[in-house]
Amino acid sequence: MKKTALILAAAFAAAALPASAADFGSKQTLTIDGKAAYLAETSARILANKELKAPELVDDITDGLSGTKVPGYKIMIMGRTYSAAAETKPPKEGQSQWREKAYVHRGIKLFVGIPVAKGKPDLAHARLLNIGVVDDNGGDAPHTPDEKIRPVGKQLMNENAVVEKAHLHISELELPNMKKGEASGGGVKLKAGAVIDGKAVETELDSTFTRFYTAKPTSSEPFKADKRFVK
């Protein structure tokens, strides 16, 4: 079995001791309509079991949209920054950045389904189930010097958005130790994107997870598949 499969199987099946650690970098890029958008971190939220100690195995990652049930796991992978982040304005006297507290997130969310085949996670056939993209015009969203919170930008995805050429490739995925309640660690290597209302959105992540969250199985609504991505 390849190293990627070993890491993923250990992380998802046991969610405890990972196999040999993957060598993640510090790359996180996002372009929207050809213009770069700043990302500060890579994070993730996984649909977990009721004890929040392991991923939840769902009956169908496609939520009935593919015509055939595909059992597997669901995870949200995020490349993001904030509406009041260090890059928005120069710090005031006594501050290390303009605002010490994080506010509204900007960037990209990838809603991913990972099939399970013969009891093992099948990373090669991971599915992009939905996407969220907040565009702030490459960091140029206008704001006045006295504004306390920078404008969050525009969410490109809505119920009427036309989505084309959606794609996802994950080469590495390692979870933090869920049994111990780790809130960071692991990481991901992926490339993904789509054309949303004519705007090409492309992201590449090769990074550890700065923040890692768990969601109870009763909180599955945000992870639901979108028919524009599932065929």
Rank of each mutant, 00 (worst) to 15 (best):
R80L: 12
A40R: 07
P115S: 10
A15S: 10
A48L: 11
D59M: 05
Y213Q: 04
K179M: 02
D226I: 04
E172H: 12
K189V: 15
P145C: 05
A11E: 12
A11Y: 12
M178W: 12
R99W: 01
K216Q: 15
Q95H: 10
L57A: 01
G198M: 05
L128Q: 07
I77H: 03
A48D: 09
G64F: 03
K109H: 14
A11L: 09
M1R: 07
D206L: 13
L156C: 00
D60W: 08
E182G: 01
V104F: 06
A44I: 09
I196F: 01
G34S: 14
Y103E: 02
P90F: 07
D59N: 12
Q28S: 14
G25Y: 08
G186D: 08
N137V: 02
M76N: 15
R211M: 09
A19C: 15
V133S: 01
L129H: 04
A10Y: 06
K89N: 01
K69Y: 03
K148Q: 10
V188M: 14
A36F: 05
S219P: 05
P222D: 04
A225C: 07
D63F: 10
G94F: 02
W98C: 00
I114P: 02
K154I: 11
F209V: 01
A166W: 08
K120Y: 00
K154S: 07
V104E: 03
I75G: 00
A9L: 10
P142I: 02
T203E: 02
G67I: 04
E93M: 07
A15Q: 05
G79C: 08
D136Q: 03
N160I: 01
K3Q: 14
G193K: 01
G67F: 11
I7Q: 12
D206F: 04
T208M: 07
I75A: 04
A15F: 10
P18F: 01
L30I: 05
L6Q: 15
A192G: 08
T208N: 13
P145K: 15
L8E: 04
N137F: 03
K27F: 10
A22C: 12
R99M: 04
V188S: 15
V195T: 15
S171T: 15
E87R: 14
G132D: 04
L173Q: 06
D140G: 00
G72P: 05
P145N: 08
L47C: 10
R150D: 00
T31S: 09
A85L: 02
E172T: 13
E202A: 09
K53I: 12
R106Q: 13
E100P: 00
K101P: 00
S66L: 13
S66D: 13
K191M: 07
D122C: 14
K120H: 03
P145M: 10
K109E: 10
M76P: 12
I75R: 04
F111Y: 14
A192R: 07
I75D: 03
K50V: 09
I196W: 01
K109S: 14
P121Y: 06
I170S: 09
S43F: 02
Y73K: 12
I114N: 01
E204T: 09
S20L: 12
S184A: 13
D226Y: 13
G132K: 03
D33P: 00
R106A: 01
A84K: 01
A194F: 00
D33G: 09
I46M: 10
A9T: 15
S219K: 13
H105D: 11
A40D: 05
E41H: 08
A124M: 11
G186S: 12
D33V: 03
I75K: 05
E202V: 09
G185F: 02
K227D: 02
